[in-house]
Write a protein that binds this DNA or RNA. Structure first.
Lengths: 135, 135
DNA sequence: GTCTATGCAAAGCTTTTGCACCACT
DNA sequence: AGTGGTGCAAAAGCTTTGCATAGAC
């Protein structure tokens, strides 16, 4: 099976201590995490916020991580299994997330292509307040 | 017919010079505009960037303006006609926009509701590079 | 006259960049 | 040994806040 570290090797990325830690946190997280979330979950001083951002960028480029844009413009990071395209229902407050295993992105992008758009991407997200947070 | 100024009155907002200018620009725009876009379209010094942000926030709260989140987290503003819910195909570079007059938001929000989420909202956007910009 | 809206200045927050040092392969 | 990754410090970019003044009703 392909764990996080194998995926680093597949992507020809070096297996460093910070990356091990980041993947470990992402794997055990029950919801998407912000850069700050990741930082605060680490032993204090064990890695820098910059390293988190740089790695999330690299991971996203290699499809190891999926980036979620919140309504506020802030971003969350989630481990992205190969071929596991999906969307989310996300709590605005605690970021508790429900997977949406549907996607009309294909049709949308076909439409966009027919309009002359290239290099396509799409976002489909539902934002709300979960029952925990609204209680 | 309900032009921008009437909509201000309906919302019990004061009809000020800055607001007239902002609505005028939004009405004549052929694509969603950023705060900076709006500023640069105004006679220099005729209003402040802060005024633009404050009004976009107020307008959005009253449904006069629709906010679009780009992949980068930046936001664009577009006039929002009453009852005119729709989504977009947006060029990452020039922000040229094609309306998507379809929306599965209803079903998505129903699903979210059944999962205990309240105060719902959703985003469906397609990003790409338009034929002008990729040429 | 009252209360909202604006301008200016300054701060806030997330994210990015530069550069020297470190460490994975 | 060589290249890629990390840390620290600093900057950048967009957006927000505070406060006194101006302007709409």
């Amino acid at each position: 099976m392909s764990n996080g570290i194998d995926r680093l090797r597949e992507a020809k990325l070096r297996v460093t201590q910070p990356r091990r830690q980041l993947l470990e946190e992402l794997e055990s997280a029950d919801r998407p995490l912000s850069a700050e979330d990741l930082l605060s979950k680490m032993a204090s001083g064990s890695l820098d916020l910059v390293t988190i951002y740089r790695n999330m960028t690299v991971f996203a480029e290699h499809g190891i991580v999926q980036v979620i844009q919140l309504e506020s413009g802030k971003q969350l990071f989630e481990l992205h299994a190969v071929g596991d395209h999906h969307h989310h229902i996300i709590c605005r407050e605690c970021h508790a997330t429900v997977r949406l295993d549907l996607c009309f992105g294909g049709e949308l992008e076909k439409l966009a292509k027919s309009q002359g758009y290239s290099d396509l991407n799409h976002t489909i997200e539902v934002f709300g307040v979960c029952s925990q947070c609204s209680a």
